[in-house]
Computed example of a mutant assay.
Amino acid sequence: MALLTSVLVRGINNLSDARYCAGMGADGLIFTLDPALPGAVDAATVRELAGWVAGVELIGEFGEEMPVSEMNRLVEECGLQRVLLHQRPEAALSVPALLHAPLFLITSDSLRNEMLLQYQPVLAAGLGVVASLNMDDLPEARQEALAAAATQLPLWLSGTITAANVSGLLSVIQPAGLILDGGNEIKPGLRDFEELAAVFEALEED
């Protein structure tokens, strides 16, 4: 299925999500591999779920305390192509990274440039920035500032992305892609995909 933009789905912890998102055209699956984060899975689960899907990027999500040496070990063990981080790492990573950053950093030209200069040496493999949006508190001026940032660096949007607002976000901001949230199974093999399906449907190319 062809989508209007690149889509990653985070919080993958079950086979239903992994197969559904891959089948709907997601480019990547994000697994929470840091035990300090909610909903974390272990490396064995990542390898097992990855064995059931093809053609998608495998991404590991890590919090603020995990050493880079442990991240790089899990990258190798799980066959990850990228990582999603919540802080600047203290040493070089072996794969490209997506980095969560506060909106005030992303939307300020001077602060954004300073951040990129500081982070680039340890993210030499590649860097993208993730903005987490609250659509109830995203005035037009902030959207325009995000659109300007998206012309200068790979900007990914996460947060309250729904079928109702996704087309507008793509039109105004033109991000590198979207990060959607996966969910939990009701019971093994049973999962309600209504909300996620609505977003994928809104992203389908005509």
Rank of each mutant, 00 (worst) to 15 (best):
M115I: 13
S94C: 03
A91Y: 01
R82M: 07
L116W: 06
H100E: 03
V56W: 06
C78N: 12
P96C: 06
L85E: 06
E65M: 06
I59A: 01
D109P: 11
G55Y: 02
L74A: 00
L103A: 13
P89A: 04
E77I: 06
G55D: 09
S110R: 14
N72H: 06
T107H: 10
R112L: 15
R112E: 12
A54V: 09
A97V: 00
V95Q: 02
R82V: 10
G55H: 06
G60C: 04
A101Q: 15
E64P: 00
F62D: 08
I59P: 01
E90D: 15
M71I: 15
V56C: 08
H86T: 10
R73D: 05
G60F: 02
C78D: 07
A97W: 00
E70Y: 02
R82D: 05
L116A: 08
T107P: 09
D109E: 14
P96Y: 04
R88Q: 10
M71Q: 12
L105E: 14
L111W: 09
L74S: 02
A91V: 03
S69E: 15
E65N: 07
H86V: 00
L74T: 07
Q81P: 00
F104G: 06
R82Q: 11
L80K: 08
L93F: 01
Q87F: 02
Q87N: 11
E114Q: 14
E77G: 00
L84S: 12
V68R: 01
E57T: 13
R88M: 11
L80H: 05
L98N: 02
L111D: 14
N113Q: 15
C78I: 09
G55F: 03
L58E: 01
R73A: 10
C78F: 08
E114G: 13
G63T: 09
I106S: 07
L58F: 02
N113W: 04
C78S: 11
L105S: 07
Q118C: 11
E57F: 02
R73H: 05
Q118T: 14
L103I: 11
V68F: 01
D109S: 12
G79V: 12
V83P: 03
A101F: 02
M115W: 12
G79D: 08
F104V: 09
E57R: 14
M115H: 11
M71K: 09
D109K: 13
L80N: 12
E77T: 08
A92P: 01
L103Q: 10
R82K: 12
M115D: 12
L80R: 10
V56F: 05
G55L: 07
R112Y: 06
S69H: 07
Q87I: 01
A54G: 14
S108G: 13
M115P: 02
N113R: 14
S108T: 12
T107D: 13
R88G: 01
V56Q: 08
R82I: 05
V56K: 10
H86G: 11
H100I: 00
Q87C: 13
V95M: 04
V68L: 04
F62P: 07
A54H: 12
H100S: 05
E70H: 09
E77W: 00
A54T: 15
G63I: 12
I59E: 01
L58I: 13
E90K: 08
L93N: 06
M71F: 02
